[in-house]
Design a binder for these strands. Structure first.
Lengths: 178, 178
DNA sequence: GTAGACATGTAACGCGTTACATGATTGT
DNA sequence: ACAATCATGTAACGCGTTACATGTCTAC
């Protein structure tokens, strides 16, 4: 039930094809969300049937496969707004490595330190990607308005930046304790 | 493939019944992991077949249903250690509210502030629960040894504490920006 | 007598992941 | 010739969630 709103969140900003949506999810927001084409295409069709999106037209560029461009409808925007304001239960932090950390007492300290350093490095990479992304987005930001979609994107990526720093810090503390 | 290791992580510390495992997961570690009985019982049976756990015995207390106590085997402990040290891809931060934040530009600021305050309160509750848990665990900690399973549990819960603080802080910043 | 904890399971459903299928064009 | 990108889809599988089924005992 959530992928639906992920698609709507993107379509609320601009008309897109199924392929575009998949790209934006997996390339730009890979570390946050991911979708497979098996989810995108059927879900778009389903939402079209429910009147949440509609086919804006089929773009046919020379020597290129046809692109089916979808746009959000009034009803789709309303559904998205309602979902955004809806309350729900808090999510779990389901990170496998946290479960692995639960077993540090079992394993060889030397090898665990190696793993922790590797994890830290991976989070450092993500951090760098997020920071680059924010810098890029800030140049696009003309108004300091909270109604600007780019400002919303920056806020989300900033969460990511803080999260990665927290993770790296936690790894450091664990390494010291080993 | 991950629930299996969650069960083994608990069984590596003490023999437990399926019911115990479910309770520990959902009560103590609810915000981190959760399992249903449908996953616990069949998985235990499967792991018994594979020799990762074995039935220690059936505890029959007066006027109580029989409890099937499982203990981890040598092979189970080895599998758990191997998994703990294994590399893998980084997890995604799949939190629905982050996706909702992506749509703040669409919604009424007043109502969004209300939602943000609600979310903050929920995370504050979790934070309090984590802090209580750590205080409780620290009294159980006799040795300052990294080989103590309780120290490992504390480290994981401490991640939770830092995460909840980060989330609350992020909510505050969003509220100010609205 | 009715609700809730204890205890073990099964059934049904939906979501997400990986892989497959098709087909054109561009670059090496 | 071969791989990669663009573009739309389908199939198969596994995991996780909710709900159901069964039965005893304790507390109100």
């Amino acid at each position: 039930m959530s992928i639906r709103y992920a698609l709507l969140s993107l379509l609320a900003r601009e008309p897109l094809s199924g392929y575009d949506i998949k790209q934006q999810m997996n390339d730009r927001f890979g570390p946050f969300w991911k979708v497979g084409s098996n989810q995108v295409y059927p879900e778009l069709a389903k939402m079209e049937g429910e009147g949440l999106v509609k086919l804006q037209g089929i773009e046919q560029q020379a020597n290129r496969p046809a692109r089916k461009l979808y746009e959000i409808t009034e009803a789709g925007r309303d559904a998205l707004i309602q979902w955004t304001l809806e309350s729900g239960e808090l999510e779990r932090i389901r990170d496998d490595f946290l479960l692995k950390a639960y077993n540090i007492w079992l394993v060889d300290p030397e090898r665990m330190i190696g793993r922790l350093e590797e994890i830290k490095r991976q989070h450092e990479e993500r951090l760098a990607a997020y920071e680059k992304k924010v810098a890029e987005l800030e140049t696009m930001l003309t108004t300091a308005d909270s109604r600007d979609p780019i400002a919303a994107t920056i806020s989300v990526v900033e969460f990511g930046i803080r999260y990665e720093r927290l993770y790296m810090d936690w790894c450091d503390r664990l390494i010291k304790k080993m």
